[in-house]
Simulated scan of single mutants.
Amino acid sequence: MAPAAAQAADAVQCELDRPMRFGGMNWESNLVLVEVERFIVEHGYGCDSEVLPTETLPALAALERGDLDINTEVWLNSVLEPWNQAEATGKVKRIGDIYMGGEAWFIPKYTAERLPDLKKAADLPKYWEDFKDPEMPSKGRFYGCPAGWGCEIVSTNLFKALGLGDTFTLFSPGTGATQKAALTAAYNRGENIVFYYWYPTPVVGSMDLVKLELPPYDADKQKCLTDPDCTDPQASDYPENPVFTAVSAGFIEAAPKLTEFLSKVSVPLDDMGAAMAYMDEHEAEPDETADWFLKNKQDVWTQWLPADVSERVKAAL
């Protein structure tokens, strides 16, 4: 009689007769979740897979065409109109909510302790000297969003809406890596910094941060804040940002069991933050971080799977 493990492997046959095609976005949480899902589909469902490097809008078009099976992380607020149009075709479907992502203006906890009355972003002009820009010491420095990213438009309009231009420079790093390096270096030196960031990310996961209060979220104000030609920006907090899994309609038809698994993928923000912190601290690659997640967060991912699939994945770790 064959060993139990061999029997289990023989019993698993992938619903697809080709590799499963994942969209590989260029931010850390997506790269890690894709590797977690790939490990599960390989060892739990007997499937091959591949990652096709892409970006948000091209990935959406590829899902519609059926060239891509799954986009693990769609950030709704970043692609609201294109997503609504794609969904209306019936060729793509939102199948599961991963977590509620967010965006905020942050200061380190040590800065909050030094400046206990600094609670609101609108109060920053009073404290500009505590955030001196090394290249323009007559002003403070606010670290905005990387140049050319969608969040740069909102950062810039919010900066204007709060009237910070007289006392602060708006520093837009050239790339995400430049932004991360500048913030990490300043934080490690214990310098006062104020900056925009999104989460879950290694930066927010690994630093002890405090959010600055912004005025309550207002949909109309937010609409203007997202417009590069907004003539009279008004301050509003960032909306919550649903992050969900999308798949092509053809994939749902061909692989109902895989679709059911993917529809259940949901990660508590604290657990995703812990994975991001591990990635940062150990300078780990996405697959190494996925391995850490699978070994250390079994209470999370086993809820996504039938018991037999879960046991096969555990046996492969």
Rank of each mutant, 00 (worst) to 15 (best):
L212R: 00
A274C: 04
Y110H: 13
E288F: 00
F39A: 15
I40C: 03
G150Y: 00
E260H: 07
T156M: 09
V243A: 13
D17E: 12
V41E: 03
N84H: 10
W83V: 01
P3Q: 09
A88K: 05
L76V: 13
L164W: 11
L262D: 04
L63N: 01
D130Y: 09
K93P: 00
K295G: 10
T89W: 02
W75F: 13
F244M: 10
P134K: 03
P306L: 11
D117W: 03
A316L: 13
P239V: 06
A62M: 14
Q234D: 03
N296W: 08
L214V: 08
K223A: 15
V210T: 10
P137K: 13
L164H: 04
S310A: 15
P233S: 06
V51H: 02
S49H: 14
D280C: 08
L162C: 09
G174Q: 10
Q13D: 06
E260D: 14
Y199G: 08
S29E: 12
A219V: 11
A254Y: 04
M25P: 01
L115N: 06
T245Y: 04
V79G: 07
L317R: 14
P216N: 08
A121M: 07
V51E: 11
G90C: 07
D270A: 15
W304C: 01
A290E: 04
E311F: 11
E213Y: 07
P286N: 05
M20W: 07
V267W: 00
E73V: 15
V154N: 03
A274L: 07
A121H: 03
P306T: 04
A249N: 12
D208N: 12
E64L: 05
E28C: 06
G148W: 02
E129F: 01
W301S: 02
S49W: 10
R189F: 00
T111C: 13
S266L: 08
E152L: 01
Q179E: 09
A307T: 08
M272Y: 10
Y110E: 10
M1C: 09
V51R: 06
E129Q: 11
E35D: 11
A255Y: 07
Q222Y: 15
D69S: 07
L80A: 14
Y197H: 10
L305W: 04
T72S: 15
T169E: 05
